[in-house]
């Protein structure tokens, strides 16, 4: 039980996918302009991550033992088709949500955080429950980083920043400071 909690908190805070592993930087810098959209995108990504973790576990246990060199290709195909499927499902069930997510939904496919999740949890040899918790932690951690960044960016729009620094440069420096703050969580479990 303790180990499961550790996996979750570690993926959520200590080894945050965005701020410690630099995964999913494209949506992190591209979408984090508005608080609302970043929150929704984070939740959609978390959902895709959970399904990917499930599929990756299944693939690893039943298919890839016979053909390990197909790992990368099969993961990417699974992710692409999952995203496609979710897109159709949301379109059918809730057109309003589909409209709100817009272009961000198909873009989840090229989010390296999702492929990274599948590869990392395979490398660590996680079972089903561990893998799912890892995915949940990573997804929520991604959402957390995205929302924090969006909040800071909304503030920084009105701040007197030198003209040359506006845009990606200042965003990266903000992200660096955020990442420094998250490093503080590393002390969380050293006592335990």
């Amino acid at each position: 039980m303790n180990e499961l909690i550790w996996i979750f908190v570690s993926a959520l805070l200590i080894n945050n996918f965005v701020l410690a592993y630099f995964l999913g930087l494209c949506p992190f810098l591209g979408v984090s302009g508005r608080l609302e959209t970043s929150f929704r995108l984070g939740l959609a990504t978390t959902f895709v991550m959970l399904i990917t973790a499930l599929c990756a576990w299944f693939l690893n246990n039943y298919v890839l033992i016979h053909a390990p060199y197909l790992r990368l290709i099969s993961f990417i195909v699974v992710i692409a088709s999952t995203v496609q499927f979710i897109e159709m499902l949301i379109k059918k069930l809730s057109p309003a949500l589909f409209k709100a997510l817009g272009i961000f939904l198909p873009l989840i496919t090229t989010n390296c955080a999702i492929l990274g999740l599948a590869i990392f949890s395979t490398n660590k040899g996680y079972g089903l429950a561990q893998g799912m918790l890892y995915a949940l932690g990573a997804g929520l951690g991604f959402t957390l980083a995205l929302v924090l960044m969006a909040g800071l960016r909304e503030e920084s729009e009105t701040a007197p920043i030198p003209r040359l620094m506006r845009g990606t440069a200042i965003n990266l420096i903000i992200a660096g400071i955020l990442s420094m703050a998250f490093m503080g969580f590393a002390g969380l479990f050293s006592a335990a």
Partner: peptide, 19 residues
């Protein structure tokens, strides 16, 4: 060499390039 350094270095390099 820790993660924050990656963000900071890239941010400063971008600044240099736009300058």
């Amino acid at each position: 060499i820790l993660p924050p350094g990656g963000f900071l270095t890239l941010g400063l390099l971008l600044l240099f390039f736009s300058w």
